[in-house]
Amino acid sequence: MSNINHHLNDALLMGYATANLPEAFSLVVATHISLCDDCRARLESFEALGGALLDEEVADLTDDALDATFALIDDGPKEPIKVTQPAKDAVFPSPLRDYVGGDLSAVQWRTIPGGVKQAVLETSKDATVRLLSIPAGAAMPDHGHRGTELTLVLKGAFKDEDDRFARGDIEIANEDLHHTPIAEEGEDCICLAATDAPLRFRGLIPRIAQPFFGI
């Protein structure tokens, strides 16, 4: 729990607290927060700001609003109240398991050039999110970014020119970053990666393959 070195920034936490992130980014944020108490505390402080602002303004309700609400209460919850406790030994925290339909073993991988495997998860179209499995010692294809890219490590670790990222660590990249992440020796590196624009690969082969694999 306490070994996380790379965290969410305030813009992302506030964006999540105010419901202003694309669903794909929200999934990465919720997954990181499930692993990181520091970011959870920071998120809840941004939510406290929302709570404090809630006090500022009122709107009139219809006369029978309270009775109508008691009627809703008497009907019982529309969906069962879900409590998602951390599962023991799971690789994926519960928000991610919801999207995958299970833990790591349930992922339907597709191999893409370079030996990397990926699985695109279904979210709203304003951004995309995928699971990546990078073989131990292998490099991710060299790519630049348009827009923002979030990469959250779930298993194994990767290194780029400057840093090491292991389970729970999140890398926040923008268009200025050109890097070459390499999975550490020893085990494959599983990441959850969200982009708000398609990745732009710089090598020729990946670029040709790009439209076909939806990278």
Binding site: A19, E23, L27, A30, I33, R40, V83, Q85, P86, S94
Partner: peptide
């Protein structure tokens, strides 16, 4: 906020583990 996302955007809201 979660109700707003649900009603207005028709999107799912991924939530952290409780």
């Amino acid at each position: 906020r979660n109700k707003m996302i649900d009603a207005l955007r028709k999107q799912k809201r991924p939530e952290p583990e409780d």
